[in-house]
Design a protein around this nucleic acid. Sequence first.
DNA 1: ATGGCCTCGGTTCGAGGA
Length: 258
Amino acid sequence: MKIATWNVNSLKVRLPHVLQWLEANPVDALCLQETKTVDEKFPSAEIAAAGYQSVYTGQKTYNGVAILSRHPMQDIVRNNPLFPDASQRIIAATIEGMRIVCAYVPNGQTVGSEKYQYKLAWLDAFHAWLKSEIALHPNVAVLGDYNIAPADCDVHDPVAWQGQVLVSDLERAAFQRLCELELADAFRLFPQPDKIYSWWDYRQLAFRRNMGLRIDHILLTPSLAARCTACVVDKLPRKWEQPSDHAPVVAEFLQAAE
DNA sequence: ATGGCCTCGGTTCGAGGA
């Protein structure tokens, strides 16, 4: 079993990349963020032709999330029932006994701004809802763009970024509280090379200079962490023409014991 | 340099992202 997450920054623009990536990486489930696509225009036929079912919740211009799966999906939940919100940022489905939560955490804009307060409130409510999902489902994987770099080793220049949005103490504390639900950062279950990131600014030749942040994550309940055999960032699509500013993150699992 | 790029909506610029 392989699962992945990718902020595509417009599915309309990136659909060819998604299809190309799935052909080379036939994961069981792929979580997408920032589809920026209303449901009526979701490219489910093109995705079905590649062998994937889709569930999604989108809106015009901003946000939007989807799960693509090679297997049937059950118990679809859209958004957080504990947090009324016009932004389409969460979709969840059960796939092959795995509860897959796909999330696009708010960006926060600047520390102290209204959007920053919204991000913190959103994360509080996300924590409360995940707690109930974990109580309901034995195997939960929470994939997405968290817009938080959990530690300084996830930041190319921690001094320059100190206190900024995406790395601030309150955001990191919120991430830590999610981990205290007994969710493990799959990437950190394994020895990793230094300076691995999942997002690079479009400006300043940031990708070429590896000026990035690791803000896309896969969190796992203990049952899944025990079965996880690898977690990697696939930088390759970031090198393609007209790329998303994010790269996919992939986790691989042993099958559950019979 | 409070910059730089990309996407969207809707027109050639502003908002939002991270």
